[in-house]
Design a protein around this nucleic acid. Structure first.
Length: 813
RNA sequence: GCGGAUGUGGCGGAAUUGGCAGACGCGCUAGAUUCAGGUUCUAGUACUCGCAAGGGUGUGAAGGUUCAAGUCCUUUCAUCCGCACCA
């Protein structure tokens, strides 16, 4: 056969058309007896077109899915949309189109781009999280949570993004700014909001990081989650307000230092502080609160104000002043602390500023009790000057003193978490309506299950600001109370779109179900997700929410897995010209441009070849050209040798087959363990280089083994080219349905061992010997080597180390 | 400050178990093909001394363990990411 030119456009459009004609090509099957493999990539909001930064995520997942298919797994690789909201909504408003319509147009466009990239999705399982059925089940979950006390409504200080004109969850505030608007400072507002009790699962969420996820999820993500949950063990203690007898509860992790407490400091918002403060004090408190809203946290200096009140230490009976301090947070612990300047750095700084006494009560285990005028002693030691507790070690004292507080009714051991309940209310159009009705007589009444789903009204005016657009739609707001039948008002808050993404991957297993969110039997088969792949930016948003949701669904009896994903992989970003791709930097390479210029296969191969997948990679056009050259060389080699006949040189055959089996070994290992596809592809390049070198000397028999295996190994990385070459070889059937080639340990082994000769650890020569050569013989041969001899001259041999088949090191003096 | 990483040629990276540092690719140099450019092919390419043969140095830095260290240990520096007045 004459050599063919690698025409990527012609090849890719030909196979895309064929695959489009058979949409069920990649269908997964719940009844299969084969082992299952559920691989899923996190998908971006369908708000614009794909660029090559997104593509890398899918290229990794798709290579894995194709490999698993070829290894005989029953693979579920669904295609869908995890969630969408703001971008689609904003774009829809800007383009004056209904968000449904807008989003579906985007989905169609992005689906087309995914098809052009040749991704192997199970297209039938598409889930669109704004479809009525999806709303139904979101609302169904909400009502279940309400029943169980996991959903509640309260007036709370919440994060408010003025740009979005909506509330944000704590997880969605990044560096004091909105996760969508990186330069817009988040404000605090007091509003009636719906919450889900993530704190009820705080302990399990933390425990399962160690028990179930350690080693299977990236350390980075786990440590971010641990940090976020922020468990700390300590003691809550009631100080008594002098005069009124009111209790001021404080939380401390160092109750052993309580005899050193020289004042109590409350958050400026604290109700008791507000009561105690005079007018000037309240103005001061307001100033502190405002500063926290508007300034960068790093710029705020310690600030305090004496409330005029005093409180009694329940252990010592000592009367200490009550202050407010801007570094005490109302929403962590109890909103108040005891200040022990001798043993806490922040308290030290505060108390030295305001001339509050410093009294040490902990001495180092091997030292003496002393006042240090320059710093706090924050380590553990021995308790002193603390009445009956003096002499105890810090750790012991914490236990004994907590128990003492409990016995005497003024406190107890307590665990505090940094994580807060998930505020799910959003004052925007785009999201699942919260299914409750507010009735003047009956209060908050859930919408009956039979009336679900509550759908978004269609006739909405999008002003893009102010309160929820739903509140302006009378036909939506006016409702009838399900309990008393009187006119009532429908809830106009919608759910955070992260609710959608918390369980979309369950819905994929049963996307057409209209009786339940999903069939539990199907979940039992597919779950947990074997491999979840996505960007690290979801480490504490999506990945905590979906873990929480999984645990709730388990406790509702719907599923039996404790965690959504057995393994998580976070891929690196695609960098171009030293920066993350973004429209504002103008360094974006769109998927369509890449496909047109280099082809999808080249793009995929280069994105996998340029760096290991967990690392950031640099996109350069020159690098992509290298990948194109490689594919083009393979293609030409296969085409001109597809129907070669005749004998060859057995030595060349042997060399080529050895390289082939080494390559199979390497690629297989990379898929099974490290996912270092860059070295897999390097292995295939080495194989091709050797084949080109030996081309004229290869026999038909050898090529018959090598060419199909080479094409099959390219399948996961460059599916279009592989399919075309498979056809050139006269084979039929999709490449990803062929069995993955197996390597032969005997064939991949070198004929002889190359033994490295060293003198004092430095390379001085090499020897080629048969495998398993006798150690003494090796030593003798090494000594006899002329190059080695030159370095032995005039020296005394002290020692000889022989590593069989590998190395001889002669130590001389 | 706390937590997590990373540091290897001009560049991206390789070296999976302590055993030949720099695989593979980009770039660059020279040559062949070509009217020319591009493509393709061949050879070379860590630094350094040397005409060469050959030698010396080299994985952020400094120590250490070892016959042998990019890999293990100690200290340290730099960069990136996350959290941050969390009591």
């Amino acid at each position: 056969m004459p050599e063919l030119v690698y025409d990527h456009q012609q090849i890719e459009s030909k196979w895309q058309q064929r695959w489009d004609a058979t949409p069920s090509l990649y269908k997964a099957d719940e009844d299969s007896s084969r082992p299952k493999y559920y691989v899923l990539e996190m998908l971006p909001y369908p708000s614009g077109s794909l660029h090559i930064g997104h593509i890398r995520n899918y290229a990794i997942g798709d290579a894995l899915a194709r490999y698993k298919w070829m290894q005989g797994f029953n693979v579920l690789h669904p295609m869908g949309w995890d969630a969408f909201g703001l971008p689609a909504e904003n774009a829809a408003i800007k383009n004056n189109r209904h968000p449904y319509e807008w989003t579906h147009a985007n989905i169609a466009e992005m689906k087309r781009q995914h098809r052009r990239m040749g991704f192997s999705y199970d297209w039938d399982r598409e889930v669109t999280t704004c479809e009525p059925e999806y709303y139904r089940w979101n609302q169904w979950f909400f009502l279940k949570m309400l029943e169980r006390g996991l959903a509640y409504r309260k007036k709370a200080l919440v994060n408010w993004c003025p740009e979005c004109a909506t509330v944000l969850a704590n997880e969605q505030v990044i560096d004091g700014c909105c996760w969508r608007h990186e330069t817009t400072r988040v404000e605090q507002k007091a509003l009636q909001q719906w919450f889900w009790k993530t704190t009820a699962y705080a302990d399990e969420l933390l425990r399962d990081i160690d028990d179930k996820l350690e080693g299977a999820w990236p350390d980075r993500v786990l440590s971010m989650q641990r940090n976020w949950i922020g468990r700390s063990e300590g003691t809550e203690v009631d100080f008594t307000l002098d005069g009124t007898g009111e209790k001021i509860r404080v939380f401390t992790t160092r109750v052993d230092t309580i005899y050193g407490a020289t004042c109590v400091i409350l958050a400026p918002e604290h109700p008791i502080a507000q009561k105690l403060l005079d007018e000037k004090g309240r103005a001061k408190a307001k100033e502190m609160i405002d500063a926290r809203k508007h300034k960068d946290p790093g710029d705020i200096l310690k600030d305090g104000y004496f409330t005029g009140g005093y409180a009694l230490n329940p252990y010592s009976g000592e009367k200490v002043p009550v202050w407010i301090g801007n570094f005490v947070l109302m929403d962590y612990g109890t909103g108040g602390i005891m200040a022990v300047p001798a043993h806490d750095e922040r308290d030290f700084e505060f108390c030295t500023t305001y001339g509050i006494p410093i009294r040490p009560v902990i001495r180092p285990a091997d030292g003496v009790l002393a006042v240090n005028p320059t710093a706090a002693f924050t380590e553990y030691g021995v308790v002193e000057g603390s009445g009956e507790f003096s002499g105890l070690a810090s750790g012991e004292a914490r236990r004994v003193m907590s128990a003492f507080a409990k016995k005497n009714g003024f406190g107890e051991a307590a665990i505090t978490y940094r994580i807060k309940d998930w505020g799910i209310s959003r004052q925007r159009y785009w999201g699942t309506p919260i299914p409750v009705i507010h009735c003047e007589a009956c209060g908050v009444v859930p919408v009956p299950l039979s009336e679900l789903p509550v759908l978004l009204p269609v006739d909405v005016k999008f002003t893009g600001q102010g309160k929820s657009p739903l509140a302006e739609v009378d036909s939506f707001v006016n409702a009838t109370c399900p309990q008393c039948g009187k006119p009532a008002r429908r809830e106009t808050d919608t759910m955070d779109t992260f609710v959608d993404s918390s369980w979309y991957f369950y819905r994929y297993c049963d996307s057409k179900n209209d009786q339940a969110p999903f069939d539990s039997k199907k979940i039992a088969y597919w779950f947990p997700i074997d491999q979840y792949i996505g960007g690290v930016e979801h480490a504490i948003l999506h990945l905590i929410y979906s873990r929480f949701f999984t645990k709730v669904m388990r406790d509702l009896g719907l599923i039996s897995n404790d965690e959504p994903a057995a393994r998580l992989f976070t891929q690196g970003m695609v960098i171009r010209e030293g920066a993350k791709m973004s429209k504002s930097k103008g360094n974006v390479v769109s998927a369509d441009d890449m496909i047109a210029k280099f082809g999808a296969d080249t793009g995929r191969v280069f994105e996998l070849f340029a760096a290991p997948p967990e690392k950031d990679m640099d996109w350069t056009d020159a690098g992509a050209e290298g990948a194109y050259r490689f594919l083009s060389r393979v293609f030409r080699f296969v085409s001109r040798n597809a129907d070669r006949t005749g004998d060859g040189d057995p030595v060349a055959d042997r060399k080529a087959l050895r390289k082939l089996h080494q390559a199979i070994h390497r690629v297989t290992d990379d898929f099974d363990s490290r996912w270092h596809f860059n070295t897999s592809i390097a292995g295939l390049m080495e194989l091709l280089n050797l084949l080109c070198d030996e081309e004229s000397k290869l026999s038909k028999a050898a090529l018959d083994q090598i060419l199909p295996a080479l094409v099959l190994m390219l399948g996961p990385f460059a599916p279009f080219a592989a399919e075309e070459m498979w056809e050139l070889l006269g084979r039929t059937g999709p490449v990803f349905r062929q069995p993955w080639p197996k390597y032969d340990a005997a064939l991949e082994k070198e004929d002889a061992a190359e033994v490295v000769l060293q003198v004092n650890g430095k390379l001085r020569g090499r020897l080629t010997v048969a495998f398993g050569a006798d150690q003494a013989a090796l030593e003798k041969a090494a000594m006899a080597d002329p190059k080695v001899q030159a370095f032995l001259e005039g020296k005394q041999v002290v020692k000889v180390i022989v590593v069989p088949d590998k190395l001889v090191n002669i130590v001389v003096r």
